[in-house]
Design a protein around this nucleic acid. Sequence first.
DNA 1: ATGAAAGCGCTAACAC
DNA 2: GTGTTAGCGCTTTCAT
Lengths: 362, 362
Amino acid sequence: MKHPPQGRRAAANIHDVARRARVSIATVSRVVNRIATVDAALAERVWQAVDEVGYVPNTQARALVSGRSRILGLIVSEITNPFFPELMQEFDNLAVAEGYEVMIGSTNYDAARTELLIRRMLERKVDGVAVMTFGIEEELVEKLVKQGFPLVFVDAGPDLPNVRVLKVNYGEGIREAVRHLAALGHWRIAFISGPLAMRTAATRRDAFQSAMAELGLAVPAAAVVEGKHTMESGKAAMERLLAAAELPTAVVCSNDMTAIGVLHALDETTHKVPREISVVGFDDIHLAQFMLPPLTTVQMSCRELAAAAVEALRAGIEPGHAKAAEREWPIRTRLVVRRSTDCPRDSAPAGKVAARPASDAK
Amino acid sequence: MKHPPQGRRAAANIHDVARRARVSIATVSRVVNRIATVDAALAERVWQAVDEVGYVPNTQARALVSGRSRILGLIVSEITNPFFPELMQEFDNLAVAEGYEVMIGSTNYDAARTELLIRRMLERKVDGVAVMTFGIEEELVEKLVKQGFPLVFVDAGPDLPNVRVLKVNYGEGIREAVRHLAALGHWRIAFISGPLAMRTAATRRDAFQSAMAELGLAVPAAAVVEGKHTMESGKAAMERLLAAAELPTAVVCSNDMTAIGVLHALDETTHKVPREISVVGFDDIHLAQFMLPPLTTVQMSCRELAAAAVEALRAGIEPGHAKAAEREWPIRTRLVVRRSTDCPRDSAPAGKVAARPASDAK
DNA sequence: ATGAAAGCGCTAACAC
DNA sequence: GTGTTAGCGCTTTCAT
C-alpha cells in the first residue's frame, strides 16, 4: 500500500519545486542551502516556487547522502525525576539552535530498556550521544563506544578517543553550603548520601567530609547515613538520624529529593525547619523553590551542564571544532540560599550536647 | 569532507552483510525484516553476518523508501511543567512499543518557537502529531492541518478529516471532588480557575459550577477567582480569597500548581491545611504527593491520555486501523484523596457565617 | 552560473 | 527461494 491512508496528498519534493521554477533540482538544492553562487533572479523564482508548493526539505534524504543525521542522543535516568526535564529543555534549546534535533531516552535503571534505547539511537544514526545518568550504567553503553561514536559522560567515562567527560566540581558548592551553615552557627551537621554504589553519590559525600574537615568540624560516623536519592529514602534516613542520641542542627542532603524526604520526616515531628533543624539540598530542581519552606540547595546549573554537553558533542562531531582535543569539561556548582536554613535555635541547648570542637586553624 | 572526523569507521551496511553471508542484499533485507520465505540455513548465515559486522539497519534509508518515518510528533506547552514529563514518558513508552520513535517539542507559549517546531517536524517527516497543549494555539498548527497530517488534539480541534480529539471528562472528577468536600461537611467552597482564555480552564470552572449546583450549593461570584495555572497566580488568588469578607472552608483549584500556590499563601497565615481550609488540586502531577500535606487532587491519568493519543494517531496513520473512523476519544478523570482535605474545623464558626443553604433534592 | 548524473542504504517489484 | 534492479529525495562532483 503505497498511498498514505487518509487521502493525504504527498508533500512536495525538490522536483516539484524545480519544475515550477523551471530550473534543475541542483539549482533548487543550491538555493535552499544558500549556496551564494546562484543568480539572484533564479533564486527569487525558486523561493517563490518553494512557497507556492509548500516545499520542506526531507531530512531523511539529506541525512542519507550526507552521512550525518544531525540528531543528538540524550540519555537520562528517568524523565520523571524533576532534575531531568530541566536539563532536557536546555539541551534541546541549545541543540536546535545549532541545527540539531534531539532524541531523548530514559533508562529507568533498566538494562533491557537501555539496550533497546541504544539500538534505537544506532538505527536513527545519531551523530553523538550524551549519557547524563549520573550513574553506573557505563558498560551498557559499550556498544556505542565500540562504534566510535562521539560520547559525553558526566563525572567519569571510559578513557577512549571519542569520549568526553563533564567534570562536576561538587566540592565547590558543598563547601559553600557547609560554610554557610557554619557561619550561621551550626557545627553538628549531618549528611544523607545517595546510594554509594553510584559514583556521583560517593563523590558528593567525600566533598562534604572534606569541607567539614577544612573547618575543623567533626563528622561522627553516625552523622553520615546512606539514602537512595529518593524522597522515601530521605525520609527514612532522617528518621534514623532522629533516633540517634545526638540530634544534628543541620542536615545536608546529596540531592533535593532526599531533602524533600527530610522535610516530610520532620513535618511528622515537632521539629520546625529551619528554626530547629536546617536542611540543605543538592541540584536545585524546580521543585526546590515550591517547597515549604523553599529549599536552600546547591545548584548544579542545568544550563551550564546542557551547554557543556552540547558543545562537547559538537567538538566530537564537527570537523575542526576549536575544543576538539579537550577531554574534560568543568562544571561549577554554587549555593542558593532560600528559607530552609537559619541559625540554630540556641547555640547550646540543655542536655545532651557534645563539646564544641575548637575551631582551630581557619 | 566525507569522513566522520575522529577516525570513526563507517557503520556496516546491508552490502557488508550480504558480502559476508554470500547472499544478495535482497535476502539480507528479507531476513532482517523477518519475511518468512527465506531458507533457514541462509537466514542463519545472514544473522551471523549481521552479528559479526555489527549491522544496524539505517532508519533514514528505510523511511526514504517506505515513505513513512515511524516518528510521532508530540507537542506540549512546557516541558518544565511537571505534568508533561509524565505524559511524555508514557507516550514514549507506548509509541516505542508500537515501533515508533517520538519527537518531542515544547511551545513555551511562544509563536515563533512553535512555528519552528512545526517546521522541524515537517522536515523530519513525522507520521502524525499529538498537540497536547491544553491551549489555544490551534491556529498555529494550521500548517500541519493543511498538510493533511494525522493530528490529535486535547478537548477541541478543527473539524477536519484527519483530526482526532481527546475529550477529557472534567466533570466526572470535579464532581467527585465537590461531593467529597460536601460529604466532609464543607459548603463554602471556592474555586480558583486557570486563565479563562484557555478553553480547558473555562471547561473546568464550568464543571465545578455544575457540580456545586447539583448539590444545591451556592457559588457566590466572589468565590470564583481567576488564576493563571502557575504557583504564583495560585498564591495571589488565595490572597484575594483571604481578603474577602467570607472565608471559604475549602478551595478547589484548576490545576495542581495553583493548589501549591494556595498552600504557600496559607503557610504565611495562621490557617492550617487541612484543619481549617481544605485544598483540592487538579492533574495529579508527581509533585502532588510530595507536598506538605500531600495534595488531594483530581487525577487526569497520564497513562490514559498518552495511550489514547498514541492510539488515535495510529488510527490516522495505519491503513485499516479498527478505530480509524472514531473522531472523539473519551478520557476519564477521578479524585485521589490525600491529606489536604478534611472536615471543616467546626460546622458553624462564630461570627460571619452565611446561612447554610437547605440541601434540597439530593 | 547551471544542469546531468551518480549514488547514499534500503525495500519491493519483477525475473529466474 | 533468491537475485537483479528501479527508485525514495537529496547533495555533490563533473561537465558545459
